[in-house]
Design a protein around this nucleic acid. Sequence first.
RNA 1: GGGGACGUAGUUCAGUUGGUUAGAACGCUGCCCUGUCACGGCAGAGGCCGCGGGUUCGAGUCCCGUCGUCCCCGCCA
Length: 599
Amino acid sequence: MCGALRASDAGKKAVLMGWVNRCRDLGNLIFIDMRDRTGVTQVVCNKELNPAIHKKAGLLRNEYVVAAVGKVKLRDPNTINKNIPTGEVELVAEELRILNESKQPPFLPGETVLPNEEMRLKYRYIDLRRDAMQFNLELRHKVAIAIRSYLSLQGFFEIETPFMTRSTPEGARDYLVPSRVQPGSFYALPQSPQLFKQILMISGCDKYFQIVRCFRDEDLRADRQPEFTQIDLEMSYPQPERVWEVVEGFLTAAFKAAGHEIKTTFPRMSYDEAIRLYGSDKPDMRLPAMTDVREVFMAENLQTLAVNPNLPVIAIRIPKIGELSRKERDEIKPLLTAKGGAKLFEDFKRLEKSFPEAAAKIRQQSRAEAEDLIVVVAGDGKPAEHKSEGGVKPEVKQHDHAVYTAAGLLRVALAQKYAGRHRQFEKTGDPTKDFRFLWVTDFPMFEWDEEGKRWAAAHHPFTSPHERDMEKLESDPGAVRALAYDVVLNGTELGSGSIRIHRQDIQRKIFRSLGMTEEEARSRFGFFLEALEYGTPPHGGIALGLDRIVMILAGAESLREVIPFPKTARAVDLMVDAPTPVSEAQLKELGIRIGRARE
RNA sequence: GGGGACGUAGUUCAGUUGGUUAGAACGCUGCCCUGUCACGGCAGAGGCCGCGGGUUCGAGUCCCGUCGUCCCCGCCA
């Protein structure tokens, strides 16, 4: 292979096949850099030694596919290239064959500047020749293998579940597949194998896992693709801790495969704590927590500042940013996503002038050092609107929540904006600092859906509530905690799981809490409710995003860097040009008529 | 659904206040060159300035629309 030859191979005969990465034609001497996925080797063609070969080498162009046969030669000490692993040797060509020519490619894999993404996606086969992409593909392979073998050794079976399944209107939008045999009926591609894996538990499969594609028809982001890969697993009779242990085990194996020794067990934090301390259910632990500094102000002070005294006052601290200029302080303001009347005091200096004592206490309580940036977020002084929902909705808590999460978003936005200064996001080489894992536990069972004016499942409707909260299901749904947990890494949600409901009566109760009538529940999930009646063992599991894990390991900013054939933000594949309209005949066969195009 | 950035040679970009023939680097073509490795030197080709409309004596530049890519909010049980 092109990356394999070393000084120890000197004198041997070798055959190289690969692409022409670059040619250097010095006249009577031509150097060819040959490339394959393993690396680059220099091939020499000397006119004096072999005029025929030299002549052929002159015909080579970038990205031609060639075979070169010759002797491996140690380079003269002064011509060694320290930049490449094969730099001590070169291949003296005795035979050269052009296996295939290439049109001039729109861009060259060996080039240092990248073309824009549209170009890279359209000519993905050329983009994937780049060593960075080859590295990511290999990384992904290694990580997947490590996880498979770890879980297999732990007694998990990888079991496949259908891609063509049943549409369930809960959750994300489904991708639909029309049925030809049953015109007017549709399969749905799975958003996750959730019900199948639970039924596998009912089937006695005990420990199941699958590295499996999932599909969600929702708007995309840098870290969201319409089809993505989950490491999905489920087991019978576990406590949450048992699931966490398995996840920590395979993540350790995966990170080891990528060259990082991480430490378990991961720290744990309840959802409430995460919101209060980080304003997020996926805290980035590389940055310090926020502090509620409400008490440092006198009631009059809060009034002067037009701040609601009943809401938290949050100090955000970002370390080592240094002094901000006037202009920079102005730039901060738009970063605050106004939520529930959250209000921002970006100018901590001014606060120090008007309320020196309070400011000093804030510094002390948030353990700020001289170079740290402090920003204070508070609730607006205007009396909170009370949109009463029959006394069920916990109004006050909702408003607290809004201030916390607004502060949390600002915290992350500030940290990103000034990442170049505080350098907390840069890799140190120490895995305990570079990879801050966290379990977030005890999620709320329900979320209030403002649009639909109803309670919705925060995780999914098969999640088991805490035993102690069972009686609040009807009286106070907002206070019910679920046996649900997320694994978070550096502020990214890697995976989400729960202990499931295994009793049919409780499952019915949950559907009822979600405002589903008996008939609705039966028509959507009847098969599952029935299965629950035939001796269902307690069970639970989790699913992690493989793409996101590999993305973080690759240090990439987008999932597209670790997916060979990804889609654009509008869910288009630019290489194959999908989706496309289909022929009238195809539609007719499926019994589908396309309505007027959307306005 | 909403907000923002970008779109000029094969590629990455520059293009002043609206003013003559739209530039650079890499790549490409040809010639020269025996130790280069992002080789070097000389010469050359290459443009629907995303698309459509408008303002103007005159538009790459200003305005409106549209298409595409990217980022964010909503959304993603």
